[in-house]
């Protein structure tokens, strides 16, 4: 679920408010979006992809994180390279190669035949 809107990074462009398909954001009084309906977040990561300054972070968890979880801490996320990591992987942003250009996935019909290695 959406866990972080970085006030320091946000440029109040409203793109996440428009792009969120389940409408979780409201525009705050100073323009910085607030997560008004976290329970409606479907954890699709699309807001991160559309944020031009990597100011948003979506934790992969379907339930809200507890107070004090590192995935809610901007400093931790920044140092772990997680802020903006999805946008980088799909190659969105100036000077990047679109991920679509490189998206050649594995063969999905014939997995290499090996036996499971056990626990």
């Amino acid at each position: 679920m959406i866990e972080l809107v970085s006030r320091g990074r946000c440029i109040t462009c409203d793109r996440c408010i428009a792009a969120c398909p389940t409408n979780v954001f409201d525009r705050g009084p100073d323009g910085v979006p607030v997560v008004a309906r976290q329970s409606d977040c479907q954890t699709c990561f699309m807001c991160e992809a559309y944020c031009p300054t990597d100011a948003l972070f979506v934790a992969p968890n379907v339930a809200p994180l507890a107070e004090g979880d590192p995935l809610r801490d901007e400093q931790y996320l920044e140092s772990a390279g997680l802020l903006g990591s999805y946008r980088a992987e799909i190659g969105w942003g100036h000077g990047r190669t679109p991920g679509a250009r490189l998206a050649v996935g594995p063969d999905l019909h014939r997995p290499t035949a090996t036996t499971p290695k056990g626990p």
């Binding site: 990561f45 995935l71 990591s85 999805y86 799909i90 998206a103 996935g105």
Partner: peptide
Amino acid sequence: RLGQPNFFLPFDR
């Protein structure tokens, strides 16, 4: 990873 980067988001995070 190239085919579908978002598959790895839960794992990486």
